[in-house]
Simulated scan of single mutants.
Amino acid sequence: MALTVALGLYLPGPIPPGEPPPSKIEPWSTSAVAGSADAPVFVQSSPVRVPAGGTAQAIATCPAGTQVFGGGESNPVSGTVVITRSVPWRGTWETTVRNNGTSDAYVTGYAVCGSGLTAYRQVHGSAVSVTPNGGQELASVDCPAGMRILGGGQWISGPLNVSIDASLPLSDSVSDRWFIRVRNHNAEIIGIQPIAICGSGLTTQIVSGGGAVVAPGEYKPATATCPAGTTLLGGGGGGVWYDTHQGVTITDSYRSAQDSWTIYARAHPGNTGPRGITSHAICGT
Score class of each variant (00 low, 15 high):
residue 1 M to P: 01
residue 2 A to R: 13
residue 3 L to K: 11
residue 5 V to T: 13
residue 6 A to H: 12
residue 7 L to R: 15
residue 10 Y to N: 10
residue 11 L to V: 03
residue 13 G to Y: 08
residue 14 P to G: 04
residue 14 P to W: 14
residue 15 I to N: 08
residue 15 I to A: 13
residue 17 P to Q: 08
residue 18 G to S: 04
residue 22 P to L: 05
residue 26 E to S: 08
residue 28 W to C: 04
residue 28 W to T: 00
residue 30 T to E: 12
residue 37 A to G: 05
residue 41 V to R: 04
residue 43 V to L: 10
residue 45 S to W: 11
residue 50 V to A: 08
residue 51 P to C: 00
residue 51 P to N: 15
residue 51 P to R: 10
residue 53 G to K: 07
residue 54 G to D: 15
residue 54 G to P: 00
residue 54 G to M: 01
residue 55 T to Q: 09
residue 56 A to D: 10
residue 56 A to R: 09
residue 57 Q to S: 13
residue 58 A to V: 10
residue 62 C to S: 06
residue 64 A to L: 08
residue 65 G to C: 03
residue 70 G to V: 03
residue 70 G to E: 01
residue 72 G to W: 12
residue 73 E to M: 07
residue 75 N to P: 05
residue 75 N to Q: 07
residue 75 N to Y: 10
residue 78 S to R: 09
residue 78 S to N: 09
residue 82 V to E: 11
residue 86 S to F: 11
residue 87 V to S: 02
residue 87 V to R: 04
residue 88 P to W: 02
residue 88 P to T: 04
residue 88 P to M: 12
residue 90 R to Y: 15
residue 90 R to D: 14
residue 90 R to T: 06
residue 91 G to H: 14
residue 92 T to L: 03
residue 95 T to W: 06
residue 97 V to K: 07
residue 97 V to G: 10
residue 99 N to A: 01
residue 101 G to F: 15
residue 107 V to P: 12
residue 108 T to M: 10
residue 112 V to F: 15
residue 112 V to C: 11
residue 113 C to R: 05
residue 114 G to V: 02
residue 123 V to E: 14
residue 127 A to I: 03
residue 128 V to P: 05
residue 133 N to A: 07
residue 133 N to K: 11
residue 137 E to N: 08
residue 140 S to W: 13
residue 144 P to S: 13
residue 145 A to M: 11
residue 148 R to N: 11
residue 148 R to K: 14
residue 149 I to D: 05
residue 156 I to L: 02
residue 157 S to F: 14
residue 158 G to C: 00
residue 158 G to V: 01
residue 161 N to G: 01
residue 168 L to Y: 15
residue 171 S to V: 04
residue 171 S to T: 07
residue 175 S to F: 08
residue 176 D to Q: 03
residue 177 R to V: 09
residue 180 I to T: 09
residue 181 R to S: 00
residue 187 A to T: 06
residue 190 I to W: 12
residue 195 I to W: 15
residue 195 I to D: 10
residue 195 I to V: 14
residue 198 C to N: 06
residue 199 G to F: 06
residue 202 L to D: 06
residue 206 I to V: 08
residue 208 S to L: 03
residue 209 G to Y: 00
residue 212 A to M: 06
residue 212 A to S: 10
residue 214 V to A: 07
residue 215 A to Q: 14
residue 216 P to Y: 12
residue 216 P to D: 09
residue 217 G to A: 01
residue 218 E to L: 01
residue 221 P to K: 05
residue 224 A to Q: 06
residue 226 C to M: 08
residue 227 P to V: 03
residue 228 A to V: 00
residue 233 L to G: 06
residue 234 G to H: 08
residue 241 W to K: 10
residue 242 Y to H: 05
residue 242 Y to K: 05
residue 243 D to L: 06
residue 243 D to S: 04
residue 247 G to M: 02
residue 248 V to Y: 09
residue 250 I to P: 11
residue 259 D to E: 14
residue 263 I to S: 03
residue 265 A to V: 01
residue 268 H to T: 04
residue 270 G to K: 08
residue 274 P to M: 01
residue 276 G to P: 02
residue 277 I to G: 05
residue 277 I to Y: 12
residue 279 S to M: 00
residue 284 G to Q: 09
residue 285 T to C: 03
